[in-house]
Amino acid sequence: MTELDEKDRLLLAALHKDSRQSLVALARHAGLSRSATQERLRRLETRGAIAAYTIRLGAEQKAPMVRALVAVAFHPGKNCDHVVPHLSGMPHVVSCWSLAGATDLMLLVECDSNDDLDMIRRRIAIIPGVATVQTHVTLRTHFDRRG
């Protein structure tokens, strides 16, 4: 990905603060025209600087019943380029982190049941390049500073 310029960084900061801002508000914040802002956002999406527009459900909304951390190790010679594209198409895989050490990726998986988790885990295990999958089901959240 090419380097972000100051206007790109302004747009990303504004979206990070409030992703529901209108295109006009974003343009005003970055000092750009509406069409220039729209083109920059499209380019940022294409380059992967903007991965998704999402919401975080409030406490009143139904949370997933099952949450697990899934540790993935690759076969020798395989890397994130081989595996992550498969994972990004799985909506229950809500986060994916590269790690140093014996585990190559750590995934946060959220679903409605243990049966769903088992199905997702099996789908991950058959991705070309995946050597091992270890699943750690969470029991309780003591605190969560995200969002």
Rank of each mutant, 00 (worst) to 15 (best):
P64T: 00
P91C: 00
M1S: 15
R43I: 01
P85W: 05
R43E: 11
A131R: 14
P85Q: 03
H86E: 01
V94K: 02
A100Y: 14
F74M: 00
N114Q: 13
I120D: 02
P64W: 01
R121W: 06
R122C: 07
T132S: 10
H136M: 14
A30D: 06
D81L: 12
D144S: 09
I120S: 02
S33E: 10
G89I: 00
C80V: 12
L108F: 06
L44M: 08
T54A: 13
H82P: 05
D18Q: 08
M65C: 09
I55T: 14
R40C: 06
T54Y: 14
A125D: 09
A59E: 14
Q21G: 00
S113C: 02
T2F: 09
S98P: 04
V24E: 12
D104W: 03
D144G: 04
R34H: 11
V72S: 03
E60H: 11
D115V: 08
H82T: 06
A14S: 12
M65P: 02
A68L: 05
L87W: 06
A59R: 11
M90K: 00
A52K: 12
S19G: 12
K62R: 11
T46A: 15
F143E: 11
S22I: 01
A73P: 03
L26F: 07
A63S: 12
L12F: 10
A27P: 04
L41N: 03
A13I: 02
C96H: 00
R9G: 00
S33R: 05
D144R: 09
L23R: 08
M106L: 15
P76A: 01
A36L: 07
P85A: 01
D104R: 01
S95K: 12
G129D: 04
C96A: 11
T37G: 04
L57G: 09
A27T: 05
G77C: 09
I127M: 05
S88L: 11
L4N: 05
G48V: 01
L11I: 12
S33F: 02
T138Q: 11
H82I: 01
A49H: 15
L107P: 00
L99Y: 06
G129W: 06
V137A: 06
H29C: 08
S22G: 13
D81M: 10
A25M: 10
R28Q: 13
R56V: 13
D8T: 01
P76Y: 05
I127Q: 04
D144E: 15
Q134G: 08
S95L: 12
A100K: 09
P64F: 01
S35K: 07
D8E: 02
K78A: 13
I124M: 00
H92F: 05
R67Y: 02
T2P: 14
G89Q: 05
L4A: 04
L11F: 11
G77I: 10
V109D: 02
L26Y: 07
G48D: 02
M106A: 13
F74E: 00
T2N: 13
P64A: 03
Q21S: 11
Q21M: 14
I50R: 09
H142M: 13
L69C: 03
R56W: 11
Q134E: 14
G58P: 01
K62P: 06
M65F: 12
R20M: 09
V83F: 08
H16Q: 14
G101E: 01
T2G: 15
V130Y: 07
N114V: 04
H136P: 03
I120K: 03
G147I: 09
G31E: 08
P76F: 02
D5N: 15
H86N: 06
T54R: 09
